[in-house]
Write a protein that binds this DNA or RNA. Structure first.
Lengths: 233, 233
DNA sequence: GTGACATATAAGTCTGACTTTTGCCCTCGG
DNA sequence: CCGAGGGCAAAAGTCAGACTTATATGTCAC
């Protein structure tokens, strides 16, 4: 799903990014470009490009005569998909997963409500198709198939909302759902009630019932939050 | 509020970033680093660093033998504060403002609810202080003073929610509120009802009444949305 | 102690040469 | 006429070295 580092500077980022987001270098730590270039066996030009990218993510700050200092966590661009991926792959994965799920619980219901108002016929069709796909894969340990349709469903809702900010959260939701299936314990088939809720959301959007779509989606996200509490109370 | 471009590459970004986000180069447009370097009168190294940053924002994609191609709008990292600033300064400012306000309407009520549960005594104190500051500046054309406390209030709520993703939206809210005061028409004093709502939110958070804090904040954001509809129906 | 000044340090910049990938075109064979 | 294969060239990618600039810090005079 993620894009592996293109070029040398990308390879450097694939190592440095996760290290920084994992807290391996505490805030205030000072790195020197030349030293990093030697460590990664790349030229200074390449290392400078990598540092610029980290700087644009607000992970570090580069100052003359000082070096490259790691910024406090609170200043990181935590919405950057790359940063999200790095953090999800690292140690504070559970914390990150919780933050993202709370974000989902705020955004998705509103998005569903908007989708009920703005969705085109094609979008409604895709939505019901996804929901049907979820039903078809809800029994018999077809977890991968279920995941694909689940992701597609939530992506479709966010897109159909007509709000670009919501639409761009599709990747985030995809990461969260994939994480639940792959990393967390999920041996059994998905909760039938959740599957039903998705079908009902598709119906509500098709019917243009914004309030109902929002309320049903809220129930879905509440379920997702409870799931987290059960796994790590 | 924004950070002016540090160094030469920053200066290049200050020009190229707004140009791209403004749609001056339509998706699929091809730029060449050498040509850009000449145009901005910087070395290729500097231009390459700038391109890397634009690439990390998913605004462009650099490929060998092709050049630097502008990506479609739908792929941009629209949560990057820098991108948000560029777009707010550009032509589709109204559209962007609307998207962000809808996002606020989804996030802030939930954040307020969480704040009611998690806020510390200090955070409650700061919240009421901000609300009082808003009241003090709500009459007599003290718009700047009002804005400062308004921003501080919403920032405090988002921070007190305890969710880092919410907290990082403080800058976004600040931009939106500042935009309303500075760019949109706002000659008169703020709506007294809105001021009252802020005070009541502070009270609800202090009292730990999550439902009430969420509901009141929802009223605030509904007001913000209506304000937009009045300005551009 | 305080201010001005000197110094060392690390980032910032530029240049030029070289390497590597890859889109494109041309040819050749079916 | 068309498709496969090979060669060409364009543009990004990489590197090394020299130079510039800002600035933190230490020093010295007052």
């Amino acid at each position: 799903m993620s894009t592996p580092g293109r070029g040398l500077h990308g390879h450097v980022l694939d190592t440095l990014g996760p290290a920084i987001t994992a807290g391996e270098y505490p805030p205030g730590s000072v790195l020197r470009t030349d030293e990093l270039a030697q460590r990664f066996e790349v030229s200074r030009s390449v290392m400078r490009e990598a540092v610029r990218v980290l700087e644009s993510m607000h992970l570090v700050e580069s100052r003359r005569r000082v070096g490259v200092t790691v910024r406090p966590k609170a200043e990181w661009n935590v919405y950057d998909p790359q940063v999200i991926r790095w953090r999800l792959a690292g140690a504070d994965r559970p914390r990150q997963l919780r933050s993202l799920t709370v974000l989902r619980s705020a955004v998705e219901p509103v998005a569903a409500g908007l989708a009920a108002k703005h969705a085109t016929a094609e979008q409604c069709a895709e939505l019901t198709e996804c929901a049907l796909g979820m039903v078809a894969n809800s029994r018999g340990h077809k977890l991968e198939g279920y995941l694909i349709h689940d992701v597609a469903f939530h992506r479709a809702v966010l897109t159909a909302s007509g709000n670009e900010m919501f639409a761009r959260l599709g990747d985030v939701v995809a990461e969260v759902l994939a994480g639940r299936t792959h990393h967390e314990v999920m041996f059994e088939d998905p909760d039938p009630a959740a599957v039903t809720l998705h079908v009902q959301v598709a119906e509500a959007v098709r019917a243009g019932d914004a309030v109902r779509a929002e309320q049903l989606t809220r129930e879905i996200t509440v379920g997702a939050l409870q799931e987290l509490d059960i796994l790590a109370p």
